[in-house]
Design a protein around this nucleic acid. Structure first.
Length: 180
DNA sequence: GCCAACGTTGGC
DNA sequence: GCCAACGTTGGC
């Protein structure tokens, strides 16, 4: 079982996190870049993967997990390219924006920053933690901005025990804020 | 829509 | 194997 971390990008128009949640599983195909391909090949079952919305959104919205390691990309008749299978694990309580990542000193070496065009990049354990931390921070701060609650919560169930407790706390501490 | 940053291609 | 030209991606 893998214990590595990654980040994949998708244009929401093409394939959004929301769609991914509905699908419950997808094959990550269409990668036509050697470096990205090599990363796909390195992925192991169980690896955790940030899901980033490029072009529109520009933020990390959720976490996926590798459920099937690299195999021949079914969408092309060319042995060079591979796909992996991913399933959604959880929607981040609050997305982490590119701007935020850029502003975070500890994330300056993140693949997303260093090589913006790469669609599949590695994330170190430390970077992973920092990003989760930022998400937590966003979730906490957004109590004054009631747009934080994501519309798609199906898969977020897994973490809902935790997040619910937090939301309750937030709510009672801030009962003036109405859920929209 | 523009442009920077890369990647790829092909001539030599 | 170098490098110019071109194509693509993606942030702004």
């Amino acid at each position: 079982m893998g214990n590595n971390h990654w980040l994949v990008k998708s244009e929401p128009f093409k394939y959004s996190w929301e769609k991914f949640l509905k699908d419950k599983k997808t094959f990550w195909d269409g990668v036509r870049n050697y470096q990205a391909r090599n990363n796909l090949r390195t992925m192991q079952k169980g690896d955790q993967v940030f899901f980033y919305h490029s072009n529109e959104g520009l933020e990390i919205v959720g976490i996926a997990e590798v459920v099937k390691e690299a195999y021949q990309d079914p969408t092309i008749d060319d042995e060079r390219w591979v796909a992996v299978d991913l399933k959604p694990v959880t929607t981040l309580k609050a997305p982490v924006s590119l701007a935020q990542i850029k502003a975070e000193k500890r994330l300056q070496d993140l693949g997303l920053i260093r090589q913006g065009r790469l669609s599949v990049s590695p994330v170190t354990a430390k970077e992973w933690e920092v990003i989760l931390e930022l998400s937590e921070q966003n979730a906490t701060e957004s109590k004054s901005a009631p747009k934080a609650a994501p519309a798609f919560s199906k898969v977020a169930k897994k973490t809902s025990a935790v997040s619910k407790a937090k939301q309750e706390t937030t709510k009672s501490a801030n009962s003036k804020v109405k859920a929209k």
